[in-house]
């Protein structure tokens, strides 16, 4: 059975799905990711689906499950690169992927994660100097 590779880049796990996944492969990915989040202590997951020409309800549900599991493990998931035709189809299908953050591409996804991390720490820094909002992102890397 094929397996989708999970890459670690800094504080982020990057998954780029390049194959037409069998359902089992999707479930395997779900497990692999949970293991890797715990093993690496990463706080962000980016799943690039720009190579997928369809997302059906099974894959959609798997993505939602991955997002929920990651959140429990203190990692934020961003799904990036969804094709327009896929998005239109999902809307028609009635699948709105609640709870999943999305971005247009990997770069914007990384920005989104960085911003999210920064926001989490601003709460703590609220009392301090405004400029210190910059530091957590830098400190984390």
């Amino acid at each position: 059975m094929e397996r989708v590779p999970v890459l670690k880049i800094g504080d982020i796990l990057l998954v780029s799905i390049q194959i037409d996944m069998e359902d089992q492969v999707a479930l395997q990915l779900q497990e692999d990711l949970a293991d890797r989040i715990v093993a690496t202590g990463c706080h962000g997951v980016i799943i690039d689906i720009s190579a997928l020409d369809i997302v059906d309800s099974f894959v959609g549900r798997t993505l939602a499950t991955i997002a929920s599991i990651s959140r429990v493990l203190d990692a934020e998931t961003v799904v990036v690169g969804m094709r327009p035709a896929v998005a239109i189809t999902l809307v028609e299908l009635g699948l709105s992927l609640p709870g999943i953050r999305t971005a247009l591409n990997v770069e914007l996804g990384m920005e989104l994660l960085a911003r999210h991390r920064a926001e989490e720490f601003t709460d703590l820094d609220e009392l301090g100097d405004e400029d210190e909002a910059d530091t957590p992102a830098a400190a984390a890397s």
Partner: peptide, 12 residues
Amino acid sequence: LKTVVAARLMGA
């Protein structure tokens, strides 16, 4: 409306 929802799914 569907376009707005689709755009949101794509992250826009």
